[in-house]
Amino acid sequence: MSILVYTENWDGKFKKLSFELVSYAAAIAKEMGLDLTALSIGNVADDELNKLGNYGASKILKVENDKFNSLDNKALSKAVVAAAENVGAKIVVFAHNNLGKALAPRVSVKLNAGLVSGVTELPSSTSPFVVKKKVFTGKAFANVKVDAENVVLTFAQNSYEIVETGGSAAVEAFDPQVGDADFSTVVNETNKITGKVLLNDAEIVVSGGRGMKSGDNWGGLEELADLLNAGMACSRPVSDEGWRSHDEHVGQTGKIIAPNLYFAFGISGAIQHLGGVSSSKVIVAINKDPEAPIFEAADYGIVGDVFKVIPQLIEGVKEM
């Protein structure tokens, strides 16, 4: 018996998220006395696959079949289920990202499993299986009990420490035997975001709100983000006004992020905005209104004019 973790790759490489995910799954496997198998679908070199061994995977099933490149949800779920059955998995763990969220519900039905999405901690009990997840968009947590024979989890990024075990994994080619009839998604066009730090991966995020006054005043924030290797974000009014792209909207109805450090410039901190950023480890708020609710959520704050503060911060970072 085993735990299966689905490790997605990006152009043949894993990310910090992948290692965090494997570390998390390995800790559950250890607790339950099970093995950890990682499933990789796509063209990933064995050297890269072997890295997963260092985070606790003892076996890696690799599926190299270009048909899966279309990320067809039905076909990919079948492949994950085939792998789970192959290793007798009681628990399947996905990342709580676009692909994980797409596949986990389908896989849970097929495996007769209880699904808990967005888990943030190790299970508090494994029999019965009880695990904590975010609810009300980060405004609360729930302890969820699974009343089914199997468990499927999606794991919220940046909530578990990466643990290197020094172990190694056996790589095994695997054919999930998914037929052509199960592929119906045709990709006409793929646009990858390049040259920018992806918001979900960013350890530092620099975000601006209505206090930025227009779409023309973002040079300073971009410079600061660049210096800090940070992702750029914005509040909902900013993306609604078209000052910044919708991809950058963080908040209840936009992206939910959990960086180590979140800078909120000119963001009042409406409850919907806080829902998207409240899991950040440290929140810094700069706002001219001392009564702005963002200061209740923030760890550090400056009451003042963002346009006076930004150049000083840039200077401070350069001197660091």
Binding site: G114, L115, V116, V130, A142, N143, A148
Partner: peptide, 20 residues
């Protein structure tokens, strides 16, 4: 159903914001 809520928790209150 395959899952149920055992209980809920609110996030711990934040320490006061340190002002600069």
């Amino acid at each position: 159903e395959k899952t149920s809520f055992v209980n809920f928790e609110l996030p711990p209150p934040k320490a006061a914001c340190k002002m600069v």
